[in-house]
Nucleic acid binder design. Structure first.
Lengths: 181, 181
DNA sequence: AAGTATTTGTGTGTTACTACACATAAATCA
DNA sequence: TGATTTATGTGTAGTAACACACAAATACTT
């Protein structure tokens, strides 16, 4: 991998750290490029050297999370279905505040879209290894059905609408999904 | 005051923070420009844009300390002698680890020189307001005599050679100096 | 004492960041 | 609603920090 200029790393780190801190305490919708720049202690112009706007910034952070999530999933793909679910739900718990902020916002549709795609992708993989009990139902329908279902539960968990701890949630979701494969 | 470029402030802050952290944990003599730059996460070349070498860096930090000390002393110059001594000894205590590091080092002669000059200056001021009981002794001799004495005690305190707390030390030193004015 | 490794100080060309200014677009408020 | 503020996105010229390379000086080994 080629070497990246120190200044680029510093600027991006400062921007992302400032953004994440503000995201949790205020909300995504309240954040402005100006406020990010001030908190990051950089010129506003510098922000635009790295990102198109705050949506672009969020996009890149989300992409990075999903990339890491995929790595985790790939690394543990030989585990059983429920075990696997527990593993990636744990990552979700680790960044609960971050994801909660995004669920709370009304202008983070692309995040929901990406997360859904990710979940559907994971279920899709499991669908291959299991001989489907649903020959009568369109594969795409199953994926969308289960995908939105899982994302809905994640949202509930993030927004503290359930009392259960993450492992219990993961187990139950895993069971429900498996039943429908 | 004119506006200073953000990048200059950031570099200098990073350099000084790295230097001070290393000064306390390692010693001044062990520190290199290379290690400072690495800890500060800047290029070594950048260091030389701001300072001639590590001695120059230390010099500027010491000057800054003495400047603040002088401000404190000026601000409290109407207080009595012993009270005044307590006040500026308190500042010394606050940065005890920093000063201890310098006393410990064998290559910080300019620090000792500057500190001595500062102390002599403070005593000199008090000498004006008191009618001297030492008409027979050269003013410069008194200053040097008392100055080195005070600095010696400060060194002892910094290097933990005395058990007394800083206020008690200050009181005793104040009394001793006053007796000799 | 000779050989090796590390640190130093400097030169060079490149690039990211800077301050500042401007017009446009959104909010906020009277 | 229209007026005023605040945020956005972009342009420009100047400069600090960058990576890299080098020779000379120090420090460390054996």
């Amino acid at each position: 991998m080629e070497k990246i200029d120190r200044r680029i790393l510093k600027s991006q780190q400062a921007i992302q750290a400032a953004f994440l801190a503000m995201l949790v305490h205020e909300g995504f919708d309240e954040i402005t490029v100006k406020s990010i720049s001030e908190k990051a202690n950089i010129g506003r112009k510098t922000f635009y050297l790295h990102y198109v706007d705050k949506y672009d910034l969020l996009d890149k952070i989300v992409d990075n999370h999903l990339k890491r999530l995929r790595e985790i999933c790939d690394h543990k793909k030989d585990k059983g279905f429920i075990e696997g679910t527990i593993i990636w739900f744990a990552y979700f718990q680790q960044h609960k505040l971050f994801f909660a902020s995004l669920f709370r916002s009304e202008s983070t549709l692309s995040f929901r879209k990406k997360l859904l795609t990710f979940i559907m992708g994971e279920i899709d993989k499991k669908l291959d290894s299991n001989t489907s009990i649903n020959q009568t139902i369109d594969r795409h329908i199953i994926l969308k059905f289960l995908g939105t279902a899982v994302m809905g539960v994640l949202e509930s968990y993030a927004l503290n609408e359930t009392e259960d701890d993450i492992e219990l949630v993961a187990k139950q979701v895993g069971t429900l999904v498996k039943r429908n494969l």
